[in-house]
């Protein structure tokens, strides 16, 4: 289970997360919605271990263990996975080379044996086929020249390959066409399991029709200001965030 307690984060003296509390149980899919700039991506970066934030207070616990002192690679080994809102292009590093380095690094750190090349290729191809990612793309440099939607699919391919326990999807739906959205949602749904936790950040109810959440949380001004069931997303779609912004300002 993932617990975030009283997280207070600043960047260059500007407060971005302001006493955020959230917990997501094993097997739960939690959706996070909220206006632009409310701190959703920042939250996902903090959990994944990005530096250059000042964490003034709070804890991020995975099954009770605080991970804030760990570097991003150690967290990945613990099962944290962030599907980036804006996946990075890594020129000169072939996608296959990268996937293999990542998977084997995780396995090695967990004391598992490294995969043989044929076994590895089989797994990647299977995941790519499910996500309708052409194999030719896997031979190119990671994300270089990929379309926005292709990059998002590549993030989900990684998730399928690494089988992480704590998955954070930051606006994975943006940039996806209607068919791709279904393919990606199917990919995510296939990974749902009683010991896996999902945090799905999105602006649109549409994604949540495909990936049906157990809980929905509204973030505004660096805090979770309201939590509810999947009907909350429908309500937001109809009414927008005006209430929550006003509530903050009051």
């Amino acid at each position: 289970m993932l617990e975030i307690k009283n997280l207070v984060v600043e960047i260059e003296g500007k407060r971005i997360l302001d006493g955020l509390n959230l917990s997501v149980n094993n097997g739960e899919v939690a959706a996070i919605m909220g206006p632009n700039g409310s701190g959703k991506s920042t939250l996902s970066y903090i959990v994944a271990g990005k530096e250059d934030y000042d964490i003034l207070d709070g804890e991020v616990l995975l099954d009770g263990e605080n991970i804030l002192e760990m570097d991003p690679a150690e967290r990945a080994v613990k099962g944290v996975f962030l599907a980036f809102q804006y996946p990075l292009e890594i020129p000169g590093v072939a996608t296959m080379t990268f996937l293999k380095a990542a998977l084997n690094a995780q396995r090695k750190a967990r004391g598992e044996t490294e995969l043989t090349t044929p076994d590895f290729i089989k797994r990647v191809n299977a995941a790519a086929d499910k996500l309708e990612i052409p194999r030719e793309m896997l031979r190119r440099a990671l994300n270089v020249g990929f379309s926005g939607g292709e990059k998002k699919r590549m993030e989900i391919l990684q998730m399928a390959l690494f089988q992480p326990r704590f998955c954070i999807l930051d606006e994975t739906d943006s940039g996806l066409d209607i068919d791709a959205l279904r393919v990606v949602a199917d990919g995510v749904n296939a990974l749902r399991s009683p010991d896996r936790t999902f945090l799905v950040i999105t602006h649109y109810q549409r994604l949540l029709e495909h990936i049906v959440p157990d809980t929905v949380h509204v973030m505004a001004n660096g805090k979770v200001v309201k939590s509810g069931g999947k009907e909350l997303a429908v309500e937001l779609e109809a009414n927008g965030y005006a209430d929550y912004k006003a509530q903050e300002a009051a």
Binding site: D71, A73, F81, P87, I90, A101, F162
Partner: peptide
């Protein structure tokens, strides 16, 4: 740093 973070977030230790 952003590229390093991306790679490390996939479990690749800093030196690698």
């Amino acid at each position: 740093d952003d590229l390093l973070f991306y790679l490390m977030a996939r479990g690749i230790p800093r030196p690698e």
